[in-house]
Amino acid sequence: MLIYHLYFHLLEKPASSSFQVFADVQGFAQRYVQDWNTWLAATPSTRPDLFGRILRKWQATRPNSMRRLKDQASHAPPFLDDLLMSAGEPIATLEDLDVRAIRDRSTDQEKALCDLWRIFEQLPTTGTASCVGITKAVLLLTDGKLGPAFDSQVRKKLRVGQPASCTAWISALEAIADDIASFEDTHHIPLTKAVPDAFASLAYGRLYDMALGPR
Rank of each mutant, 00 (worst) to 15 (best):
A23V: 10
Q109T: 08
L50I: 08
G161T: 14
S45L: 02
A137P: 08
D98P: 01
T43M: 12
L2H: 07
Q30P: 00
A198M: 08
I170E: 09
T38M: 06
K193T: 11
Q26P: 03
D185N: 12
A168K: 10
P163Q: 04
Q72E: 15
L139P: 11
Y208G: 11
Y32N: 07
T93N: 02
Q30L: 03
R118N: 12
Q20L: 14
V160G: 02
D179S: 13
L146S: 08
R67S: 04
A41Q: 14
F150G: 03
R215T: 09
V138C: 15
K157R: 14
G213L: 07
R155M: 01
E184K: 13
L84Y: 07
M85T: 05
M85C: 14
D197C: 10
L84A: 03
I170V: 12
R206F: 14
D209P: 01
L173Q: 08
K157F: 11
T107D: 09
M66D: 10
A29Q: 13
A29C: 01
F22K: 09
S130C: 02
G161P: 09
N37S: 11
R68N: 08
A198Y: 08
A129K: 08
L55Q: 02
Q30W: 09
D49G: 12
A177F: 08
D98F: 00
H188S: 02
W58D: 13
Q109A: 10
I91H: 10
S74H: 10
A23P: 02
S171A: 15
Q59Y: 13
V21D: 04
V160Q: 03
P48Y: 09
E89H: 11
P196D: 12
A137I: 03
W36T: 06
Y4E: 02
Q153N: 08
S182Q: 01
L113V: 10
I3P: 07
R100K: 15
P77C: 00
K136S: 04
A203P: 06
T192F: 04
P163S: 06
A149Y: 04
T128V: 13
L113T: 01
V33W: 03
D209Q: 05
R67M: 03
K193H: 14
F199Y: 12
V154Y: 01
L6D: 07
H9A: 10
